[in-house]
């Protein structure tokens, strides 16, 4: 009887085995995937690995900002800490833009881009695919003619956000005396 239930339990353990969500994946999902290396690791994945091993602090990711620190601290069950200024600062979102008249077609920026967001070929003009650019700035230092600039990404009608309501703002403009007791129109 004991052996039988042992077998049954063993079978159930295999049959209903649930792959636990590895903490590494969950950490990586919280990182902004900018691949900028400002955390002193070569990319978001290596930083996530360092976090999972307890080698890095949660306050090293500038693009993630305060919200990122809070989310990481929450996941790892530690107290949120202030930002480490050694890793840079939280800045508005930018995209790289190449001055196409000045570009000499050296391909150095293409090699530096971690997400293949620059298009071009040797001695041909290069251009940034704006929708894919993460604003990591890694293309700026290699450019020999300084023809790449950072442009702040302003929201357009497709991705604008409502602002935080002002304390005195009111949604409905209708005067309060316009409400009627139930049953009357």
């Amino acid at each position: 009887m004991g052996g039988l239930s042992g077998l049954g339990l063993g079978w159930a353990a295999c049959r209903f085995h649930i792959e636990s969500d590895p903490v590494l994946e969950r950490i990586e999902a919280l990182l902004p995937q900018t691949q900028c290396g400002q955390c002193n690791y070569p990319g978001c994945r290596p930083y996530a690995e360092a976090l999972a091993n307890g080698d890095a602090a949660v306050n090293q990711c500038p693009p993630g900002g305060e919200a990122g620190i809070r989310a990481l601290a929450d996941l790892l069950g530690i107290e949120p800490m202030p930002f480490d200024p050694g890793n840079g600062e939280e800045k508005p979102k930018t995209v790289a833009r190449i001055d196409e008249l000045a570009c000499i077609g050296c391909t150095l920026c293409i090699q530096a881009c971690p997400v293949d967001a620059i298009l071009g070929a040797t001695k041909q003009m290069h251009t940034v695919i704006e929708s894919e650019c993460t604003g990591c700035d890694l293309c700026l230092p290699p450019c020999p003619v300084d023809c790449i600039e950072k442009v702040i990404r302003y929201p357009d009608v497709d991705d604008w956000r409502w602002s935080i309501p002002r304390p005195t703002a009111s949604g409905a403009t209708m005067a309060a005396n316009e409400i009627l007791p139930a049953g009357q129109h």
């Binding site: 990586e28 902004p32 691949q35």
Partner: peptide, 8 residues
């Protein structure tokens, strides 16, 4: 972020 990760 997902797209960036995929491309990376």
């Amino acid at each position: 972020a997902e797209t960036a990760k995929r491309r990376y």
